[in-house]
Simulated scan of single mutants.
Amino acid sequence: MIMLSGAIACSVAVSVLLKLARRFQLQVAQSVLVNYVVASALVLYLLKPPFSDAPHLLEHWPLLAALGLLLPSVFLVMAAAVDRAGIARSDAAQRLSLVLPLLAAFLLFGETADAGKLLGLGLAILALLGLIHREEAATRLGKSGLLLLPAVWAGYGVIDICFKQMAKTGARFPVILLACFLLAGCFLALWLILRKTRWHLPSLAGGVLLGLFNFGNIYAYIRAHQDMPENPALVFTAMNIGVIVLGSLSGILLFRERLTRVNLAGILLAGLAIVLLIPV
């Protein structure tokens, strides 16, 4: 349970750092770039990817290209959502992204949908609607900001589908993960260079901390599954609901985020939907 608790804490810590970025006037894109440098170094140190598998990377180029573009793009969308919509709603929207891989399993890969899964999908849609509900006096979302939470939901859902395909590569997973992080960093660096970015040292330093927590989330979650191989549903459920609960508490207690009753109902529905959607 230590690894699982660590994964939950690191996931929420990433959101807290993104929330603090505006306060400390950090350039989030620069921090995200350094995050991928740190994550790549930690993959090399902790996962020790077998470079003998590197020649096979070209076999997976569509997956690598998709993740290389999506990872930094969705990270920046998540940062904007945390800033505009708050940690509680953004974390819940991210965790509800599990709906898209399930829909893909039902519609594209021939998996059978039972009554519980269909009910879970319905509740997840209601939860997302509850999360994006706004009252002008209670939130800074605005018309454009209203699109951020669905974008987080859709973006992380597509990334999850890509990671599930990556997991099928078996022993090649570490080297493919490293390639994805390196590509994400290269794409983001190229974008920043084309924009003639003026580099900001505090933002680059903040990226080191962001990278530690971001990779800590991934590594601890993988280790939690390895430590409890007989209880994947427990790990899956505890991770998702734990992030929603801790994220909500962090937003309310640390940043005085104001949630409407409909938002709170959406968060509760998100937890119930996750319980119904867990793999049996």
Rank of each mutant, 00 (worst) to 15 (best):
Lys143Tyr: 14
Arg256Lys: 12
Ile244Asn: 13
Leu67Asp: 03
Leu177Asn: 01
Ile222Met: 11
Leu76Pro: 13
Leu98Tyr: 11
Val99Asn: 15
Leu268Ile: 13
Ile159Thr: 14
Leu123Lys: 05
Phe106Ile: 11
Trp199Met: 01
Thr139Ala: 10
Leu177Lys: 02
Phe173Ile: 07
Val262Glu: 09
Leu201Thr: 03
Pro202Gln: 10
Ile159Met: 15
Ser144Leu: 15
Gly170Thr: 03
Ser203Tyr: 08
Ile132Asp: 08
Val14Ala: 06
Val152Phe: 06
Gln25Asp: 14
Ser73Asp: 02
Arg95His: 11
Leu18Ile: 03
Ala137Met: 13
Leu57Ile: 03
Leu259Glu: 00
Leu192Val: 09
His225Trp: 07
Gly266Trp: 07
Gly170His: 06
Thr197Met: 08
Val77Pro: 15
Pro49Arg: 05
Thr139Gly: 09
Tyr45Asn: 14
Leu46Cys: 15
Ala105Arg: 10
Phe109Trp: 06
Ser90His: 08
Val280Thr: 07
Met78Glu: 10
Leu100Trp: 12
Leu183Ile: 05
Ala29Asn: 03
Phe215Pro: 03
Val34Asn: 01
Arg258Asp: 00
Val38Leu: 07
Gly120Val: 00
Cys186Ile: 06
Asp83His: 08
Leu210Cys: 04
Phe181Trp: 10
Phe255Asp: 00
Gln25Cys: 09
Gly185Pro: 15
